[in-house]
């Protein structure tokens, strides 16, 4: 049982994540009034959950240290492009309009795929923007401006 296996173990890392979130919840909810069990305050339930989560996290991590089990599969930074696409779309939609925001989203989203092809992206964009305008703007009636505001 090597150190690397323990630190790469799904269980150990998941346990640590739960402990971290649980502790954060405890820290934040310590500021909320707790009340009594008859008249529970807004802090009662979150504090309870915070302790529970921290405890469960500790158990999971401990089990992981004892028998590390599966280790975390590797990733690729390309998946961050997917998130960037969503954020960019959100920020651009109001000021730049649907057409531009969609172009950025489709561009980033398509480039995230290993096997993207430039011409295809343009075609996909044209098809999608047409569908989006017909379905959402005219069909469902979402209030969106197509061009820049």
């Amino acid at each position: 049982m090597t150190k690397a296996r323990i630190f790469g173990s799904q269980d150990v890392l998941a346990g640590l994540m739960f402990i971290l979130i649980g502790a954060a919840a405890l820290a934040l909810s310590s500021a909320y009034p707790h009340g009594t069990s008859t008249r529970m305050g807004p802090g009662y339930f979150p504090t309870l959950l915070g302790w529970l989560l921290t405890g469960l996290g500790a158990l999971i991590a401990a089990r992981g240290v004892l028998s590390p089990g599966a280790s975390v599969p590797g990733g690729s930074p390309r998946c961050a492009l997917v998130l960037a696409a969503v954020v960019a779309f959100g920020l651009l939609l109001k000021p730049a309009g649907l057409a531009i925001a969609t172009a950025v989203l489709v561009g980033l989203g398509a480039v995230a795929n290993r096997d993207f092809r430039a011409i295809e992206i343009v075609l996909i964009y044209l098809v999608l923007i047409a569908i989006a305008i017909v379905v959402f703007v005219y069909g469902v009636g979402v209030q969106l401006s197509i061009g820049p505001a």
């Binding site: 997917v82 795929n113 996909i124 999608l128």
Partner: peptide, 9 residues
């Protein structure tokens, strides 16, 4: 690669 931009949008 064609499906994912559509799902995203």
């Amino acid at each position: 690669r064609m499906l994912s931009p559509a799902i995203l949008l």
